[in-house]
Amino acid sequence: MKTLGDISNLPSMSDIAFLLLIFFLVSTMFAVEQGIPLVLPGRQSTNVTVKRSDVLEIDARANGAITLDGRPVSLRDIRPAVEKGLAQNEKLIVVLSTHPNTEYGLMVDLLDEIKLANARVISLRTLPAEG
């Protein structure tokens, strides 16, 4: 039987509470970290000699200039160049040399472009400080 003064409608209260519970359970997102993975050469790794033709050299200078095999290029040119290089030579090794005074962000931008071009063998180098 319904009464007019039945304002505190308790059953729907629990619905609201459970709705809130379920909403927050579903919408809670745990922070997942994203990063560019890379495997460094360890202690056991030996130096290998590679052919000059297998190497694509990308340099990031202290002033933010980028060179590709010695030619000055912009960040946008890196990806097509690496893709072209990989199409011509599957064993291509991309060497990313960065000057110690270069911003880390530029190095990550370049690494991002190289990874996006699907290069598998990437080598990180540091340019000599005076260079």
Binding site: E33, Q34, G35, I36, P37, L38, V39, L40, P41, G42, R43, Q44, A60, T98, H99, P100, N101, T102, E103, Y104, L106, M107, V108, L111, D112, L124, T126, A129
Partner: peptide
């Protein structure tokens, strides 16, 4: 950050044989 600082850490990682790295972005 200047890349030199990151490079110094990478060098130490290589020496300690911590080869799996990730650059968080």
């Amino acid at each position: 950050t200047a890349y030199g600082t990151v490079a110094a850490v990478i060098e130490e990682l290589k020496k300690a044989n911590a080869v799996r790295v990730s650059f968080t972005c």
